[in-house]
């Protein structure tokens, strides 16, 4: 270090003495980010970005190798009236939700270009195969968004009405009551 460096380094010692940032500013920022995550435009564009930039799991082998599951958890807050008086702005597709529970909109995606129909079933829709058909996008992805309460949820995909596919990208559910392995998703979990 040159003599000039030493001088400047000495003066710059005061650089960090700016006082702490205001906690209110940080809280405002997080509130804005959470609103931003609700308003995020073009889920489809974001989905395309994600499926092209992420490496997907390999296709299942053999005759069941039609469907590869990629679960993208989109967490869209159903922002409730906060203690600070923020306004509640329910996200799309969150109609009919109890106002006492925080609900998240979770997007399920399955890459199944050869399928003619795909549904997602789970404890959030009473395992009803007709409740939540996925919509097909260009490129063979299928997508659906479902409001679910925070916590643990067990689910699976049904391809073409009779092929049950667990999600290779998600943890497995240990319950094996009926011989078909399900997947687990945890929604809204926070680290301690």
């Amino acid at each position: 270090m040159t003599e000039g460096d030493h001088d400047i380094a000495r003066h710059m010692a005061a650089y960090t003495e700016v006082g702490p940032p205001s906690p209110e500013a940080r809280q405002r920022l997080m509130a804005k980010l959470r609103r931003e995550s609700v308003r995020r435009p073009s889920l489809l564009a974001r989905l395309r970005e994600a499926t092209t930039s992420w490496t997907v799991s390999p296709l299942l082998s053999g005759a069941t190798a039609l469907a590869v599951g990629v679960v993208l958890g989109w967490v869209l807050h159903d922002a409730r009236t906060s203690a600070n008086g923020g306004s509640a702005t329910p996200g799309p597709g969150v109609a009919g939700v109890s106002s006492t529970h925080e609900v998240r909109l979770v997007q399920f995606v399955l890459l199944a270009p050869k399928a003619s129909r795909v549904a997602v079933v789970g404890d959030f829709n009473d395992w009803d195969p007709s409740a939540t058909p996925l919509a097909r996008l260009q490129g063979g992805s299928w997508v659906a968004a479902i409001p679910v309460s925070p916590g643990r949820h067990v689910y699976s995909f049904i391809v073409d009405g009779d092929r049950w596919v667990s999600d290779p990208a998600s943890p497995l559910a240990p319950e094996d009551d009926f011989g078909i392995r399900n997947s687990v998703i945890v929604v809204g979990q926070e680290s301690t």
């Binding site: 940032p21 980010l33 959470r34 931003e36 994600a50 967490v75 997007q107």
Partner: peptide, 16 residues
């Protein structure tokens, strides 16, 4: 992947 709270951790890390 949509986890805004994960971004919150990054904010925590760099905000100051």
């Amino acid at each position: 992947a949509g986890d805004v709270e994960a971004f919150g951790h990054l904010v925590d890390r760099y905000y100051d």
